[in-house]
């Protein structure tokens, strides 16, 4: 019949890819269809950034610190995305009843997580770029990029490790039930403190900074600062080269951990029959 649509049944890698695209689609398209995010996700966080900039201005800090705040605020968008749209996402999906549909469908859950991550990365990058550009224009931040390729590599590895961490946390948060929301809320400020979103992480002693490096944004931001504000390179925690190596290791570790925790969570949830529970 003319009205019938041909349904192709994919499997294997094609199904995986199809699922990734399918799950990332709403996150990519959503940014175009509903522009309210411009106000809520850019203008309001932008005000927070302005607040931190004026704190440094009131303290008569060197101009590079204004650049640290602008950069840190742009990176905040990624951390917020990891917490609220990655780590907590499977919990929300459970609350709204989608998780059971994911598990029942032939698609692997890992593809769903990749889709969430890639879609979130895309939309968050747009947000971060807007914050960065407007912040730079408003506060006249000047950058001197010492190595474009190193900067690109640092950013890519930071994002792979960070979203790998988000994928791992999404499985763990699912086990927290009602504590998931509070756990995300709890992690927000301490990580912004210890990862040095608004100041160099070297302000802490070595072991605190080393422990904070488990969050990929810590080393990522430290390396980016060294690469774009060469005058403050002395404030760097580790050398850029070493930070790149650690970020590469974190990327592999977090992706592997995401795979393992997801499998374990899926087994546990099916065994205890709690995937469809909506625990208010």
């Amino acid at each position: 019949m003319a009205l019938q649509t041909k349904v192709t049944r994919n499997s294997g890698a094609r199904l995986f890819l199809q699922s990734v695209i399918g799950r990332s689609y709403p996150r990519v398209i959503g940014t175009q269809r509903d522009l309210s995010w411009l106000f809520f996700d850019i203008f309001l966080p932008f005000l927070t950034m302005v607040g931190y900039v004026y704190i440094y201005r009131a303290l008569k800090a060197p101009e590079e610190y204004i650049g640290f705040v602008v950069l840190g605020s742009a990176m905040t968008a990624y951390w917020i995305n990891i917490l609220w749209s990655m780590s907590s996402q499977l919990y929300w999906e459970k609350e709204t009843g989608n998780l059971a549909l994911y598990v029942m469908s032939p698609t692997p859950l890992m593809a769903i997580l990749f889709g969430m991550a890639s879609g979130g990365l895309f939309s968050t990058t747009i947000r971060a770029l807007v914050i960065l550009v407007v912040g730079n224009l408003l506060f006249q931040v000047s950058y001197t990029i010492t190595s474009f390729w190193a900067l690109f590599l640092v950013f890519v590895l930071t994002m792979v490790a960070l979203y790998g961490m988000g994928m791992m946390l999404s499985s763990l948060f699912l086990l927290f039930n009602r504590e998931a929301w509070h756990s995300a809320n709890l992690l927000q400020a301490p990580v912004m403190l210890f990862s040095g979103f608004y100041f160099p992480v070297s302000a802490f002693n070595f072991w605190v900074a080393a422990a904070a490096s488990i969050v990929p944004l810590t080393l990522g931001m430290d390396a980016i600062r060294q690469l774009v504000f060469p005058s403050t390179a002395l404030l760097g925690f580790l050398s850029v080269k070493l930070e790149l190596i650690i970020l590469a290791i974190l990327s592999v570790l977090f992706l592997a951990a995401a795979f393992l925790t997801l499998r374990r969570m899926e087994r546990l949830a099916i065994k205890h029959g709690k995937i469809t529970d909506r625990l208010d």
Partner: peptide, 28 residues
């Protein structure tokens, strides 16, 4: 509000920090 409403309170609260004189004088 249908979308993004969860972040409204916290974001606006943080935004008001600029105009409050809480962490720097308004003269800045």
């Amino acid at each position: 509000i249908k979308n993004n409403a969860w972040s409204l309170g916290e974001s606006l609260g943080a935004g008001l920090l600029i105009f409050s004189g809480a962490v720097f004088p308004l003269s800045v």
